[in-house]
Structure formats: C-alpha cells, structure tokens
C-alpha cells in the first residue's frame, strides 16, 4: 500500500482507493457499480438524487460526496438499498411527466435505464402533473421541463466551462431548472457544442434536429443495462 491509498470494504470485498476520492469514484475504479443519476464524471458532485446512497459504517450517506478513509465499511448492493433507491426513482417518475414511449430520449435515458436496473415495474405513486414550462427559444437546444429530474448536471457543467447558463428557481416541490435569460434560453450564451447542452440524463434538455437518428432498439441502454461499462472494467491495482 503506497502512502496515498486507503482500503475500504464494499459489500464484503476490500478495495483500494486513492485518498481524496469519493466512495463512488473509488468504486468505479474498482469495477463496482453504485447506482447514480446526478453524478457526472468530471463535475463536482451535487448530491441531488440520493440514488447513490450507501450505508457507511451502518449509516446512510451519498457515495458521490462522501470521501474515502481507511477502513470504511460500505454496504451497496443489498435488497434494502435497492428497494429504497427504487422508491426514489419512482418518486422522480411521478413528480415529473415521463411518457417514455413518446420520448426522444427513450433507450438513452438514464432515469428509464435506472428504473429497469432497479426492477421498477410500474409507478404506484400518484402522478403530480404540475404545469411546467417548455423553452424552445434557442436555435439548437430545447428544454422540456416535464422531464427534468433537477439533477443539476446542466448547471454544474455550465459552471465548469466558465458559463452560468443554468440555475435553479423556486423551492421545494416548485423548484425548477432556470436559465440565465429574461425570456428564455435564446438569450444565454449556450452553444450546442457545450458540455452543458449534452449533460442531461433524461429527455429534458435536448439538441434539436437529431431526434430519432438512432432507432429505438439500438440505443445505449436497449442493449446493455446502465452501469455495465463500469462493471466490465478491470479492477485497478
């Protein structure tokens, strides 16, 4: 063990982690998949979705924000946690308005893929059906807030690239994703090539004119479950 590494235990298996990493990053490197929605590699974590919640020494914590330290004992792939995560994913479905069969993101959508992975069969919570605004003012990008899960990835990506195109607005159940323009996205300096325009896990923030290019059935999660890329990785060390 070099001096910058620590050992942690995930589901009974000891893995080596780099000091300064979060639990989720260390698990990724070791080929252990922890479900997540609002984490995006390279961005500071936001801690919004809580789907990455694990038990750290017996207590719940979001693995995308929790730093590793020597000897942490972590539970990840347990029935208890899968059930809790599934219920949160179900809440996201019922909170928004997700019509998968008609959504351009279907098959590439991380929310949908997560529901499959966690074994969600139907939404049993009452749909909220709150009105949300659509913004199609930008020439190349549109926002359909019905599909927004408020993961903040667009906002953090934008900040990371030195802009501030997105932010939040309102609080509680009335919180929405907001843009840095008085009358919509067209007044912002968002470019289609920005990472922020491509950071969205769902069908909310999409590029125009590329819809349905890849047919349903051949999309990313149509063929492999979400998380496969990480699980196929060879463990480090």
């Amino acid at each position: 063990m070099s001096k910058n590494t620590v050992n942690i235990i995930i589901d009974g298996v000891e893995i080596e982690a780099q000091e300064g990493q979060t639990i989720l990053q260390a698990a990724d490197d070791a080929g252990v998949y922890i479900p997540r929605l609002c984490y995006l590699k390279g961005l500071i974590p936001g801690g919004h979705c809580r789907v990455c919640t694990v038990k750290v020494n017996g207590r719940p914590a979001s693995s995308c924000t929790f730093p590793v330290s020597e000897g942490l004992v972590i539970e990840n792939d347990t029935e208890e946690l899968t059930t809790l995560r599934r219920t949160v994913v179900e809440m996201l479905f019922a909170e928004g308005n997700h019509v998968c069969p008609a959504c351009e993101a279907s098959g590439n959508c991380e929310l949908q893929a997560m529901a499959y992975r966690l074994g969600m069969l139907a939404v049993t919570l009452p749909f909220l059906r709150k009105p949300r605004e659509l913004d199609a003012t930008h020439p190349d990008v549109f926002i359909d807030r019905d599909r927004c899960i408020l993961c903040g990835r667009c906002a953090r990506a934008s900040e990371a690239e030195g802009k501030r195109v997105f932010g939040f607005e309102g609080r509680g159940i009335n919180k929405r994703i907001a843009v840095d323009g008085e009358h919509g996205l067209k007044e912002t300096d968002l470019k289609a090539a920005d990472r922020a325009a491509r950071a969205c896990p769902t069908g909310c923030l999409r590029l125009k004119r590329i819809g349905w290019k890849v047919p349903v059935g051949q999309r990313q999660y149509d063929t492999t479950p979400i998380g496969s890329d990480i699980e196929q990785k060879q463990p480090v060390g």
Partner: peptide, 15 residues
C-alpha cells in the same frame, strides 16, 4: 419548507 435540493424530500414530502 423542503428546500427542494434532493429528490426524496422534495417529492417524497408531497407524496
């Protein structure tokens, strides 16, 4: 009073 930052509290309190 939920701040709305995280999904389980933002949506969960309403459900």
């Amino acid at each position: 009073e939920s701040c709305g930052w995280c999904a389980p509290c933002r949506a969960g309190t309403t459900f």
